[in-house]
Amino acid sequence: MTINEIQDEIIEEFELFDDWEGKYEYIIDLGKKLPKLADEHKNQDNIIKGCQSIVWLHAYKKDDKLHFEADSEAIIVKGLVSMLVKVMTNHTPEEILKSDLYFIDKVGLASHLAQTRSNGLASMVKQMRAYAVAYQAKDN
């Protein structure tokens, strides 16, 4: 699936909820389901700066595609991060750099992107793009 197809799927899933509780329970559930990041990747270098809770992001490349794994101490952030990982994983650096992440706004979570200092979703997106740039540079 393309980045946009995955985004559209998430937007569709969120249309099921008509109140904040359902939405947040779903995000919390995503957080709980996100596989734990291996301890070796929970290192200082993988910590995303600018978050109130610690967020780790690990990236690697397989067959020209970037893959992300992430974790957080806080469950809502973990749920949000899980969506980002789902959207961004298994795409080429070019696709990632070209992407327009409209789903966050569409599912009514834009405030989480704006509150950069408290949950660092924006820092996370930035870091994912930075990895894409880095891997692109490595290849050229």
Partner: peptide
């Protein structure tokens, strides 16, 4: 078992 940030976000809602 609950991170303070989750407390803050859900109370804010």
């Amino acid at each position: 078992g609950i991170h303070p940030q989750d407390v803050g976000v859900i109370l804010d809602q």
